[in-house]
Computed example of a mutant assay.
Amino acid sequence: MTQSALVRYLGHDFTNNALLIQALTHRSHSVPNNERLEFLGDGVLNCVIAHLLYRRFPKLPEGELSRLRAHLVREATLCEIALGLSLGEYMRLGEGEMKSGGWRRPSMLADTLEALLGAVFLDAGFPAAEAVVERLYSPLLENLDPKSLGKDPKTFLQEYLQGRKLALPEYVLLATEGEAHCQVFRVECRIPALKVHAQGAGNSRRAAEQQAAQAAYELLK
């Protein structure tokens, strides 16, 4: 794909195309690279997301806004957006990074996306960068639910039962399998009042409990 396709996806035409090239250039490829642009883009992104959340949720307290922002600017979210842009296909990587699959590495995709935002900011100022962020994040913001975001399955299940004045679930360890360095825990979540039994497995007891809670919650729904 040509960089013009990426520009269309972003919705920003660069006046200084060298900034776009630099934003896509990893340090393994050449100098100048995108590390400084990434630093700048990280700050721009945090500011824009804070502004968008402030406007969108006028009644949320500071702590909740911070939690939402942390979710939206984390590596996993940035990687998801970068994949939607097919950003890995445009990245300029050194031979070693190309061979090791750096173009699909979540951290590298996230860093490059931040560098692009820094490049837009330098190219056309804060309003342009804000417009790009708002465009990229629009689908995520539309589906953002402050009440449920960041809650794990055990918390969901607990709140469901408490809301119906039912006793909290019991988590029973059924088995521990495998060698010490790669154990698998099997746990059952029991809700006697509703005659619900659901099992989960994981590489820690906590992970198995979470999976069992999710299975129980799905049965209740």
Rank of each mutant, 00 (worst) to 15 (best):
A216C: 07
G41F: 06
P127V: 01
I191N: 02
N34Y: 01
E177N: 11
D42I: 01
L219V: 14
V44G: 08
G101W: 12
A198M: 08
L87R: 10
G200W: 12
L117K: 05
G163M: 00
P192H: 09
A180D: 15
E159I: 01
R55G: 10
H12T: 00
L60Q: 11
G178T: 08
Q183C: 07
P32S: 03
P192N: 09
E130V: 00
L60W: 13
R56F: 01
Y54W: 13
E159M: 03
H197P: 00
L78N: 13
L24H: 01
L87M: 06
V73F: 07
L87W: 02
A167W: 00
D145V: 07
L53Q: 07
A129F: 10
A213G: 04
E89S: 13
V31I: 04
H26I: 07
P106M: 07
A70P: 00
G178P: 11
G202I: 05
P58C: 03
A180W: 04
V132C: 09
N143H: 12
R186E: 09
L140Q: 08
V7M: 11
L10A: 07
E218G: 01
Y160K: 03
Y160G: 01
S30A: 15
I81Y: 05
M1Y: 14
L83I: 08
Y54R: 08
T2E: 14
A216R: 04
E89R: 15
A50T: 13
T77H: 08
L93R: 06
R206F: 12
D13M: 09
T155I: 05
L166H: 03
E97N: 14
K151F: 07
V187E: 13
G96W: 07
A180K: 10
R190Q: 15
E218M: 14
A131N: 11
A124S: 15
N203S: 14
H71V: 07
L166W: 00
E159F: 02
M91W: 06
K221G: 04
R206L: 12
P32C: 03
G11H: 10
E80L: 15
G84A: 06
N16G: 02
G202P: 02
E114I: 00
S86W: 10
A129S: 14
A82Y: 05
L65G: 05
A115G: 02
L68E: 03
Q183M: 12
H197A: 13
D145T: 08
S148E: 15
Y90H: 11
L45D: 04
R105P: 00
C189A: 13
V187N: 06
P139I: 10
I49L: 13
R104A: 11
A131W: 03
L173T: 14
P192W: 07
A18G: 04
A124T: 01
L141C: 11
S148N: 13
A215K: 11
I191G: 04
C47P: 00
K221Q: 14
L83Q: 15
V31Q: 13
N143I: 08
N46E: 13
A124R: 10
E89M: 07
R27V: 09
F185N: 00
